[in-house]
C-alpha cells in the first residue's frame, strides 16, 4: 500500500498508530469518563467532528504562515484558531441545530483543548498532508479514538459490576485495560508494508 494513499492514511491513524493506544493522546477524557456506552459514542462523534474542523484549520493556517514566512508562530496560531473555531461552531450549532448541539455541545469546549486535537494538527503539518489527505487523517484518527473510547466504555460497564474490587473503579485498572488493548492492537503492526 502506498503510504500516501488515503486508505493507508485512514487505517494508519485509526488502527496501526491509534492516537490513544500507541500515542497516549487524549487519555484524560477516557480515564475520567464513567462507563457509559451512550456517552462514549457521543464523545467519539464530537471528537471526530472537532478533528475534522482542526484539520481544515491547520491546512489554512499552514498556507497562511508559509505565505507570510512565520512558521515559528505555528503552535500559537494552531491553539488559538482551533479553540476559536470550535467555539464558533458551538455557537453556530446552538443556533441552527439545537438537537445536534444537545448531543455534542457539552463536550465541545472540553475537547477543544484535548491533546489529541492539537496533535492531529501538528502531525498533519509534520507529514505535509494535502487538504484531502488531512481530512482522511482526521477521520481516521477520530474513528480510532471513538473505537477505543467505545470499547473501554463497554468494558467499564462490565468492570463496574458489584463484586469487582475497588481497583476496578480506579484509573489504574483503566490503564491496565488500555495496556492490554494496546497489546491486542499490536497485532495490526506492519499492515500495509
Amino acid at each position: 500500500m502506498n503510504s500516501d494513499s488515503l486508505t493507508f492514511i485512514f487505517l494508519n491513524a485509526c488502527i496501526m498508530n491509534n492516537f490513544v493506544l500507541s500515542m497516549f493522546l487524549g487519555i484524560c477524557p477516557f480515564i475520567g469518563m464513567q462507563g457509559n456506552l451512550k456517552t462514549a459514542v457521543r464523545m467519539g462523534m464530537t471528537v471526530t467532528f472537532v478533528m475534522v474542523i482542526a484539520s481544515i484549520c491547520a491546512t489554512a493556517v499552514n498556507l497562511l504562515l508559509a505565505y507570510l514566512h512565520l512558521e515559528y508562530l505555528r503552535l500559537i496560531c494552531f491553539v488559538c484558531v482551533i479553540a476559536g473555531a470550535v467555539q464558533l461552531v458551538e455557537m453556530l450549532l446552538k443556533k441552527k441545530s439545537p438537537a445536534l448541539h444537545g448531543a455534542l455541545g457539552i463536550y465541545l469546549p472540553l475537547i477543544a483543548t484535548n491533546s489529541a486535537i492539537l496533535a492531529l494538527a501538528l502531525f498533519q503539518s509534520l507529514n505535509q498532508y494535502s487538504f484531502i489527505q488531512g481530512l482522511a487523517y482526521a477521520l481516521g484518527a477520530g474513528a480510532g479514538f471513538s473505537l477505543v473510547l467505545v470499547i473501554i466504555a463497554g468494558l467499564r460497564e462490565r468492570l463496574a459490576l458489584p463484586g469487582a474490587p475497588d481497583v476496578g473503579r480506579s484509573a489504574a485498572l483503566s490503564l491496565i485495560v488500555a495496556g492490554i488493548l494496546s497489546l491486542a492492537f499490536m497485532g495490526f503492526a506492519g499492515v500495509g508494508y
Binding site: L155, R158, L159, L161, G163, A164, P165, V167, G168, L173, I176, V177, I180
Partner: peptide
C-alpha cells in the same frame, strides 16, 4: 486485578 475468575475482561 479484575477481581478473580468470572470478572476478568
Amino acid at each position: 486485578l479484575f477481581g478473580g475468575l468470572g470478572q476478568n475482561a
